[in-house]
Simulated assay, not measured.
Amino acid sequence: MAAFVKELATRPSRRGGNVVVLDSGAGLANATLQQRLVPVRLFYDYLIEEGLRESNPVGRGRYTPVRKFGGHQRGLVPRLTKLPWIPSEQQWLDLLDVAREEPVRNRVMLALAYDAALRREELCSLRTDDLDPAHRTLRIRAETTKTRRERVVPYSAATGVLLSGYLTHRATISRARGPLFLSESRRNYGQPLTLWTWSKVIRRVGLAADLPRFSTHTTRHLCLTDLARMGWELHAIASFAGHRSTESTLTYIHLSGRDLAEKLNRGMQQIHSWRVDMLTRAARASEAVAE
């Protein structure tokens, strides 16, 4: 098992240079390492049930408060939980400079991905009848979402202008109703844009802006973090994002630092007031002694 875990931790990714983030330091993310160990753990559980083994060598990372029962049992691979990466203001501006040179389809897709905090599949699966230009909203169908829950999300007026321009351009490719975003390559002209094509577009734009960590999910992270920075309530962000549980939404609250900043400001105000009060008392005491 030790040799297997070591091999997982050093195994190069099959995607090679297309890897965006190397959480494991080798090409397999920490979550991927955990997934590789699950079937092995279940197999040993089966052997124990069949009476062929007495113990499972793949630890679950459980904690037992009573020391005599084993205390803390560490997993073979430590479970890491990291905050999602988002670009700084300058990095975002650099990305937009590169995006301005992209075709109108790519620009409107990037705008919608941020504006409506869309996942890659939700964005690429949009259809013409999902649009409501009168109210500037999108219908995200349940079958395209991660949680299988339909929702309606708004988009900004600026994105609406881009979308209007794209719809005019789309009419030169196909006037048929159906998938909103169409391929313009010679090989798949007029066919629905695939997830992989959009990933390649984002990868190319990110590299051109010197942001190799930029991915199709970065715009969603950035939008939800910005909503948290603006003071949106937790349940409102969860509803907008289509999260089944607010536990997922808490990530963006933490990433924004909103709550921590508010607590810091309140705490610093109290400390500042206390220090000023103490200085004032000291000054008054000095004046009294002088008199």
Results as ranks from 00 to 15, higher is better:
L207K: 12
Y63M: 10
F181E: 02
E122Q: 02
R175W: 11
H135K: 15
K263H: 15
R79A: 11
S199T: 15
A157D: 07
A176H: 06
T128G: 13
R203S: 11
A29L: 04
A209W: 04
L42K: 14
R149C: 01
F240N: 03
L123H: 02
A99M: 13
S245N: 11
R62N: 14
L222H: 00
S185Q: 02
R74S: 14
R151S: 03
L255G: 00
I173R: 00
E7F: 11
W232T: 00
L264V: 14
R177L: 15
E7I: 14
H135D: 14
R105T: 01
R139Q: 12
Q35H: 11
Q91T: 01
H272P: 06
T144K: 08
L83F: 00
S125M: 03
V5L: 03
H135T: 15
E101H: 07
V40D: 05
S185G: 08
N18L: 14
L47R: 05
L118E: 09
Q90Y: 08
G25T: 02
R41E: 13
S174H: 02
Q191I: 08
A208Y: 10
V77E: 07
K146H: 07
G257W: 00
H272E: 12
E7N: 06
R120F: 10
T168N: 13
K200D: 10
H135N: 13
S174Y: 03
L80H: 13
G16D: 04
R79S: 07
V289G: 15
P103I: 05
F69L: 12
T81L: 05
E49R: 06
T280H: 12
